[in-house]
């Protein structure tokens, strides 16, 4: 089996606190992996280490056969690692199209100008935001901003897409829309690692689930295996199958 992303003993410390501790994980191309765990388990920190926001205190991150451990975020982005943020981060004063064009240009290596604009429009159509293309990003609703994040990350032409709670704060209809979008992205062959609190989403979407607890990877398996795993149930202490949107995780984005 080939691997796209491989983590070997990845640890990240903040002062004395190990936010992520000795995580080993291989992700094969085409997988849709759910990364779950209680609040403060270190999920966002792990994503931050993969994308280069935080440097791993120890351990190795390999991507596409290359050691990417010490790379900066922009370098990781150009190699095909895209991410969305738990708290959406558009360029507020730019138009929706410009936001996506920026991603196409800087990470997707599309030429500046008409080419980038055309590419942006294509992705906006895919996420259903084409008619908002010339509006300022700050005028979008939360659900639209989440879709804008998706369009931006697609414009980066990623091999691996890290989705950090794309459904937080969305209502049921909006979640369904987002789900079908993510399925569409996976169908394009993009490998996806998704942080998600809604078990409904995780169970219906993911081919594999990994569980993080106190910074350590405590379980990995198919959705069926995971929901029956006593360690996982214990970690959640009855908080399993959470139905609504969850409060933002404690980890910061640096």
């Amino acid at each position: 089996m080939t691997t796209l992303l491989q983590l070997e003993g990845v640890t990240r410390q903040f002062g004395g606190l190990k936010a992520v501790s000795g995580v080993d994980l291989s992700v094969a191309p085409g997988e849709v992996i759910g990364l779950i765990g209680p609040n403060g388990a270190g999920k966002t920190t792990l994503v931050n280490v993969i994308t280069g926001v935080h440097r791993a205190s120890s351990g190795i991150v390999r991507f596409d056969g290359e050691d990417v451990t010490g790379l900066k975020p922009f370098q990781a982005a150009r190699r095909g690692i895209a991410r969305t943020f738990q708290i959406v981060q558009p360029f507020p004063e730019m138009t929706v199209a410009e936001n996506v064009a920026a991603a196409a240009m800087f990470a997707g290596a599309v030429r500046y100008g008409d080419e980038a604009n055309a590419e942006a429009l294509g992705h906006l159509r895919f996420v259903g935001l084409a008619e908002m293309a010339d509006k300022r990003a700050s005028s979008l609703t939360l659900a639209m901003r989440k879709r804008l994040e998706l369009a931006k990350s697609l414009a980066m032409r990623p091999k691996l897409l890290l989705l950090d709670e794309v459904n937080a704060g969305l209502n049921a209809t909006e979640v369904d829309h987002a789900l079908s979008l993510i399925r569409g992205i996976a169908a394009r062959g993009v490998t996806i690692l998704i942080i998600e609190h809604l078990m409904k989403v995780v169970l219906s979407l993911c081919t594999r689930i990994v569980v993080l607890h106190h910074g350590e990877l405590i379980a990995s398996g198919t959705p069926q295996e995971i929901v029956q795993d006593p360690r996982v149930i214990q970690a959640y202490l009855g908080r399993r199958y959470a139905a609504g949107g969850e409060a933002a995780e404690g980890q910061s984005h640096g």
Partner: peptide, 18 residues
């Protein structure tokens, strides 16, 4: 264009490959 991205949100620009 890249500078405008930086002006509006530097860490997001970094994430997008700037």
């Amino acid at each position: 264009f890249g500078l405008r991205c930086i002006q509006q949100n530097e860490s997001a620009a970094d994430m997008l490959g700037v």
